[in-house]
């Protein structure tokens, strides 16, 4: 029967053609094609891994950021607190210093005033004594010679008597 008897010619040609086809396809089709597919797989794998790595890194960075932020906030708070304390200190000190200075100035002024008053009293006393003497001398001018000893006596009395 024709259908069931393989023709040797066709067997030979099929075998030869198939072998050549395997070689040609293997070299020019399957190798580059599967190579490209493998390469693509590797690329995708690397990309996915890199993405995972990047996500992980991002997470770490986020954590670091949060930590640094918290630290910074804490530091800021402490700096602020310190600054406040410092400010209070300075104000206090300045207040104290001003107080002291003011007291000093007042005291100095008081002393000056007292001294000026004493001086003025002294001058006044002198002037009064002089006037008294003059008046007295004028009153008893004719009686009394212009005697230096009498001036000394007046001076002496003036010293003795205190106006205070």
């Amino acid at each position: 029967m024709d259908l069931l008897s393989p023709e040797p010619g066709l067997v030979i040609w099929t075998g030869l053609t198939f072998l050549i086809l395997i070689y040609l396809l293997g070299k020019f089709a399957w190798k580059p094609l599967l190579g490209a597919i493998n390469e693509r797989e590797a690329t995708i794998k690397a990309a996915v891994e890199n993405a995972a790595k990047a996500t992980e890194e991002l997470k770490q960075i986020e954590a670091t950021k949060a930590r640094i932020e918290a630290e910074t906030r804490k530091e800021r708070d402490s700096i602020l607190k310190e600054a406040h304390a410092l400010k209070d200190n300075i104000v206090e000190e300045a207040k104290n210093a001003a107080q002291q200075e003011a007291t000093k100035i007042v005291e100095a002024a008081k002393a000056q005033i007292a001294k000026d008053r004493a001086d003025a009293m002294q001058d006044l006393r002198k002037t009064v004594a002089k006037l008294s003497v003059e008046i007295a001398s004028k009153v008893i001018a004719k009686d009394l010679e212009k005697d230096a000893s009498q001036n000394d006596l007046v001076e002496k009395y003036l010293q003795e008597c205190n106006f205070n």
Binding site: L10, T17, I20, L24, F28, A29, W30, K31, L33
Partner: peptide
């Protein structure tokens, strides 16, 4: 070992296959 219709058709298919797959590659 005549190049019969089937052999010719087979070579035609080889050309088609090579065009498709070498082109794809």
């Amino acid at each position: 070992i005549s190049i019969t219709r089937n052999v010719a058709s087979m070579w035609f298919s080889v050309v088609v296959i090579l065009l498709i797959f070498v082109g794809a590659a």
